[in-house]
Design a protein around this nucleic acid. Structure first.
Lengths: 207, 207
DNA sequence: GCTTTACGATACACGAGGTCTCGTATATAG
DNA sequence: CTATATACGAGACCTCGTGTATCGTAAAGC
């Protein structure tokens, strides 16, 4: 399934630009920082991620981090998204397969550092318009676009009815994942993912 | 519809106990604090809520606040929940009516201070097990229980099929509200609430 | 070699949460 | 009426983490 090349990070825009003059940046530091963030995230959650702690962990200066990302929230957002990779629009030929691909991606994402990062990230997004906008347009919108296309194809194939609220369908499919990740009242499981697809199909199928 | 008496706050447990000895607390301060929190929340969001700012605003000492709530997060959680009031289990006689009552409550809640508080609260919940547990068992679980009962009644009436994943149905109905509140990619509207009920009904109705 | 940027270390300013102390006020128990 | 216990307001204080600024040194291109 994997798309070999990790391609370019969806959130490249939250990084600080580098100039072509002067001493070039040490590329290794970039990857060191990101992996350190992901590790700390996994262990201690968003709060445990501290610029200072990350710097110490990889034996670098704090300035090397602030040179690349404008703030902690940008760094964490970038790290998490880069770890998930760019998800291509799946086209399996049938709606069920496409939706299963979608929830599969969510399942994997919420099994990783995203889960630990989400609460803190969500709070910081509320205080940083530009970051929120970046995440919305570069990450969420990308995912949603591919889901929308999958539904569109299904309509074209006559597989499902038309006239339903596409955005709401998307949110009913994916919202429960975020909801459960944030409140933890129920597990995010394969079974749950499977059922979610089933229920969405039931909503959109022809009468 | 309203149940007259606001009854007791669902989150009473996050408050600090008071003793019967010595000088009694000034009850007015309690309400002053809570309304101040709700106002500041509405304007500036979770971040703008500062113990110091709240105290200044109502011309009281900070200690009077810390005497009642162990921390900012407890105070905010309490304030938001108390403003929403305890929602009784609606029983309109038909599943559609019951579900409409549920989304109606959500609609109102997310039009108020809850919306501003949610991101910050979610982040703090991730760092405070006891607070998370309190919110889960005293607030969320209460709501979910009444929804579960509504579905149970509908099954008993033969109105809908049985054997579906109740928890997931609940999350598909309510998850989109939280999801949209946190990411703001789509509006939380009457229309959306209406459609959500419609779709859920479509999932659980008899084949 | 000059300029420009990177790197690491450190000092600093700032904000907010939360604790503690203290003098004063106000309730109940005996 | 007095002792005790708590509430109240004010302020000092500690801690932690973010983000900025400075500085000497290293490494690129021109």
């Amino acid at each position: 399934m994997r798309t070999g090349s990790k391609s370019v990070n969806l959130l490249e825009s939250v990084r600080l630009p580098r100039s072509r003059l002067g001493r070039p940046r040490d590329e290794r530091i970039d990857t060191e920082v990101v992996s350190a963030v992901l590790e700390v995230l996994k262990r201690g959650g968003y709060r445990a991620v501290t610029i200072d702690r990350i710097a110490r962990r990889i034996q670098r200066g704090r300035s090397s981090i602030y040179r690349r990302w404008p703030s902690k929230r940008h760094l964490v957002a970038y790290s998490v998204v880069s770890e998930m990779g760019a998800t291509p629009a799946a086209d399996t030929g049938a709606l069920r397969g496409d939706l299963e691909a979608v929830v599969g991606t969510l399942l994997r994402a919420f099994a990783g550092p995203l889960r630990q990062a989400l609460p803190g990230l969500v709070a910081d997004m509320a205080n940083d318009t530009s970051l929120r906008e970046a995440i919305r347009t570069e990450v969420l919108a990308t995912r949603r676009r591919s889901m929308r296309q999958a539904l569109g194809r299904a309509v074209d194939r006559g597989e499902i009815r038309r006239g339903f609220d596409v955005e709401l369908i998307l949110d009913m499919l994916t919202g429960p994942f975020y909801y459960r990740a944030l409140f933890g009242h129920a597990p995010i499981s394969r079974r749950m993912a499977r059922e979610a697809v089933e229920y969405v199909l039931r909503v959109v199928k022809r009468p």
